[in-house]
């Protein structure tokens, strides 16, 4: 699924790296626990989370993720956006809750979530 399609489905606002919205993501992870995110490596993934701190961005950097969606209108700090810009990670924020946001993406075809290890 294109990042741009995700934005439309979630009615989300893009906060940085808009130039990368044509990229495709093949798997998604909805989670507030970063260690759980770090446990299973997936390629070209998007992270949906309600947790807002710099470690969310660093976790996504470590995992080579392409996009982070903050749910429930959570807003990242400027420091977080700077970290995301350094690696080109698209950041967006949606009013939707985590469950609903994940459900929308899943039901529209973003189901690939097979762990590599």
């Amino acid at each position: 699924m294109k990042i741009k399609t995700m934005q439309e489905l979630l009615d989300a606002k893009i906060l940085c790296c808009e130039e990368n919205v044509e990229k495709h993501v093949y798997s998604a992870c909805g989670c507030d626990l970063m260690s759980d995110v770090l446990a299973y490596v997936k390629d070209q993934a998007v992270l949906l989370t309600g947790l807002v701190n710099t470690q969310v961005i660093r976790t996504a950097v470590m995992m080579d993720m392409l996009c982070i969606v903050f749910v429930r209108s959570k807003a990242p700090t400027e420091e977080m956006l700077k970290l995301a810009r350094d690696t080109g990670i698209v950041i967006m924020t949606t009013e939707k809750r985590l469950y609903e946001a994940c459900g929308l993406l899943y039901s529209n075809g973003l189901v690939g979530n097979k762990a590599k290890s």
Partner: peptide
């Protein structure tokens, strides 16, 4: 803050 769930060392091993 999203950590301290007892996954750190297991993840390092993994």
């Amino acid at each position: 803050l999203g950590f301290g769930a007892g996954m750190g060392l297991p993840n390092m091993k993994r």
